[in-house]
Computed example of a mutant assay.
Amino acid sequence: MARVLYLGGLGRSGTTLVERLLGELPSVRTLGEIVHLWQRDIRDNERCGCGSRFAACSFWRRVGDLAFGGWANVDVTRVHALRDAVERTRYIPRLARAYHPDPQVREYASFYSRVYAAAAEVSGASVVVDSSKHSALAHVLRWSEDIDLRVVHVVRDARGVAYSWTKTVARPEADGSDMTRYSPGRSALLWNAHNAAFGLLSRRGVPVRRIRYEQFLEDPRTALLSLAGFAGLTIGPSDLDFLGDGYADLGVGHSAAGNPMRFTVGRLPLRRDDAWVRSLPRNQRRLVGAVCAPMLRAYGYPLNPSLEPS
């Protein structure tokens, strides 16, 4: 059974940073956003975090051989059909029920479990990390008997997330196309929906550890020790030598898809991005704050954006 640390939350919440730091721990292999592997990698042959095209990456080639006898044997059309049938936010109430779901749910989850198990065996890792983020996928994966699922729910201030979604971010692996953008109002609604869905997951017996992006950056060393324990790993102080005062030294990873930070190698500054306090227009800041107010309070964020989160 593959032990999977699933990073969940709305995009632009800091999951890629958490993933990259987790990937420096011994016995951990980070895989990127596996939810996109079927289209972006198997079909479109985009670049792995190591810089190679997916088909040319020796790590992923070995994973495909072990999991499916080669990626050419994966019926991507079937995967997409299953995704459309079971992995949608609107299906979460059905997925969260106590009785066993439609067989399609287990079939869809089996594609992921085979990737996880093969990646663990090829890398020799005790834990693999999937940073897919999607709440509906996490609810699907909980039904797999072949996955030891542990979820890290990454939360960031909704106003910071909204501001990040308004910015243009290039996808260098996709020949110049940009990442999706959302309006502040749209991102506020998504922030509520996805974060609430992870709260529901914890009430269904799945181990969920919530972390706030801002607190993670204040003390990444302590945060990583806590997450390692949550994942069932024992690490020592020397295993965190890649962390310095305000920076992390990163090696080459094999993230299959995700934020462009996955390509970063070498010294990465660790600092909070609070540009939204100054740059997100006041009317948009108030809109997001009003829409997300109940959950912002629940997560310990001040409703007055001029205040630093405690």
Rank of each mutant, 00 (worst) to 15 (best):
A67S: 10
D157A: 14
N195G: 04
D178V: 03
V277Q: 13
D130Q: 03
A170V: 13
P103D: 09
R278M: 00
Y299K: 09
P269I: 02
D130A: 06
D44A: 15
R106Y: 04
A138T: 07
W191Q: 09
A67V: 15
A158D: 09
N192T: 11
N192K: 14
A117H: 13
G232P: 07
L17K: 03
A248W: 15
D219Y: 09
T264Q: 05
L190E: 07
I34H: 09
L7W: 05
D102H: 14
Y299F: 13
T16I: 08
T222Y: 08
V208R: 10
V105H: 00
Y6M: 02
R285I: 01
L190P: 00
R88F: 01
A170Q: 08
R83Y: 10
E33R: 14
S126R: 15
P305G: 11
R94S: 06
R282H: 06
E33H: 13
G236P: 02
D148F: 00
R204W: 05
R221S: 07
D148G: 12
R47Y: 05
S126G: 14
A120W: 00
L7M: 08
P294V: 00
A55Q: 01
S52F: 12
V154D: 09
G9T: 13
Y116M: 03
Y247H: 14
L21G: 07
P103L: 13
Q215R: 10
L200S: 03
L268P: 03
R78T: 04
V151I: 12
L21W: 04
V128R: 03
M1Q: 08
V128E: 05
Y116F: 13
A174W: 09
G229H: 15
H134W: 00
S279Q: 15
R278D: 13
S58E: 15
Y163T: 08
D65V: 03
S177D: 14
L37P: 05
V169K: 06
A2P: 15
G258Y: 06
V18R: 00
P309D: 15
T234D: 00
M1Y: 10
V151W: 12
P103I: 05
A257M: 00
H153I: 02
V140K: 10
G8C: 04
V169H: 08
G232S: 01
R47M: 07
M1R: 15
P26W: 00
D178N: 11
L95V: 04
C292Q: 13
I34L: 14
Q284V: 00
K167R: 15
E107P: 10
L82G: 06
S255Q: 14
P260Q: 13
F198E: 02
Y6D: 10
S132G: 04
R156N: 01
V115M: 02
A231R: 15
F230D: 02
A223Y: 10
R209E: 12
Q104M: 12
S306H: 08
S132N: 07
